[in-house]
Write a protein that binds this DNA or RNA. Sequence first.
DNA 1: ATAGGGTTAG
Length: 733
Amino acid sequence: MAGVTTIIEAIPDATISPVKSFVKFLLRDPSSICAGYQAKQLHAQLLKYYSIASSSSSILAIYCRLRLTDDSFRVFSSIPSPSRSSWTSLIRCAATAGLFPVVISLFHRMRAAGAPPNPTILPTVLKSCTILKNSKLGESLHACTIFFGLDSDLYTCNALLNMYCKLADCQNAYNLFDEMPRRDFTGGNTIRNDALDQTLVGSFSRHFPVDNMMKLFNSMAERDVTSWNTIIAWYMENGRHEVALAMVRKMTNIGLRPDSFTLSTVLPNFAEFADVSKGKEIHGFAVRNRLDRDLFMGSSLIDMYANSTLVNYSYHVFDRLPNPDAISWNSVIGASVQNGQFNHGLRLFRQMLLSGVKPGPVTFSCLMPACAHLATLHLGKQLHGYVIRQCFGSNVFVLSALVDMYAKCGNICTARRIFNAMPSIDMVALTAMIMGYALHGPVQEALSLFRRMERENWRPNYVAFVAVLTACSHAGLVDEARTFFDSMRVDYGITPCLEHYTAVADVLGRAGKLEEAYEFISKMHIEPTASVWCTLLGACRVHKNEELAEKAAKKIFQLEPENMGSLVIMSNIYSAAGKWNETAEMRRLIRDKGLKKQPACSWIEIKNKVHGFIAHDTTHPSHGRIVEAWEALMEQMKNEGYEPNTDEVLHDIEEEQKIVNLCGHSERLAIVFGIISTPPGTTIRVTKNIRVCVDCHTASKFISKIVGREIILRDFNRFHHFRDGECSCGDFW
DNA sequence: ATAGGGTTAG
């Protein structure tokens, strides 16, 4: 308040009494003091005109209210025998500053000074004790409340209840109920060992039996919404979602209306099970009760809708939040990225920065996958720089996301460097790294990391097996793939899912074991999808097995009548076998259905700008220079022994025209553009939306040798590092 | 005064 300063400054040396009386007035109602400098001026006046003892407790209360922690402690230490309210103020002040051990030691000092515990301070002390996981002290505090007859105080009881919930022994919790605890959604049927260990280790005293919490809740004379919310949160935390929901109904039945705490606690249940109709009910209830602008509700709702793939609802909720905080932004960024709207996620991040909300580590772990999927290395690097400057560089979530981002953006060495420097290794980082190697080619590195995972007792989950099986499949390691697949079921009890089956079918097919692959797919315990049969169909083309190809194609037609890819492949198979009638039939089908192939496109970043190329695109400003450079390259390539391979050109045209068509492939345009737009020796990084074609693969090998450059091509399936005439995939893809 | 929301591998 401006008034405070002006009046005190206006009468510095005036008669003492007006100042004195004003100071008295301020002390009677200090609510007008709302800035630190005003409090300090008042403090100075007090020191000048009054004895220290009489006034310091008043000034302490003001300092505490303004959260001036240091000043509060200084004033407090000047009080010879602090009053009950001084102790209370200072302890609260320490709690708001997050100095929980200080809260405890102050409480001990207060008791030693002879002050009895009181219900205004016990909840705060109990909260600190809960955060510090000090169950020993917690127990004695409980005894203390009973001894002093404070066990009928609702706030104290709620705080005690919360302590027994947070420090409850989860192992016993599981025994208390008949059914097994939480379902494991990672595909196995065991509790994740890392999650369990964290609840048991790390606290310096024992956990409470779950009984304590139940007894206290049942014996409480009075229970308010907070009491119910506390216990509901415990059930949610321990995977007993149905019980939590039953409790919500129960509290409603006895006339307690769920509030935003209740709803934001139970919403993650509907997010996890993508139960959007129940989630919408809660949303409706929130709107009717004007709880929908609560930030906690908001982020739960955003997440729930995102998990149900209704990301537009997430945006709707977010747009209605009055002052979104960092968590609200994280939720909406995560929502868009998890739903594949990567560019929008990046846009939201920029808006977050513009709105002045500081991103935290969670923001980056939500956002980094967007860069990974878009393969925008320069953006990923910018975010990495931000992470380092903000000192988030030791957060395992952020680091794992970075490992994944660098691997997916083609920088496998940087990924490994970050991985090696991680303060503690994380299951996700290990898996991301294994997948990285699987995508780039060094299969032995992938296998050795998987062995390390097992050796260090990280129980591999279904994702880890997807990674290691992908590595085997990309390298053609048939026996290893079979072994891992069996081990997954036998040693780890993980039921295989589509991705595992696809990887194994793929490696069998590409190794030419077509019959075995067919058997394998036929015996799947889940219905194979068209994509699994497509894997086999592709293999049948390479290994020229017409009969099996027809079987596979038939399955694909049944499952996905609109699948054009299989028609194209069949047409190629028939024409390669000289079966012109069948070829014509396939082409007629393609024509009738209207061939809508996804247009092939490739892109390359030059000087922070993305240049995209669609096949046969002549619109790029540098198109003339690209063609010129390509013709020069072609001459040299021919001298080195390059022969165009037109097998993958579908169009019914003359051979010469086919060769011209090849030259217009998008990856080739992007590579040549990269070469003429960067200094000699620069690595060329190109991304393509579908698989690289055989001829472009061969051509890229020649080009890498002729121009002496490394060319890193990321296609739909994996990375190809072309260097000195060789490719990291070993021509196996 | 006590209770609540968002993270990375697929």
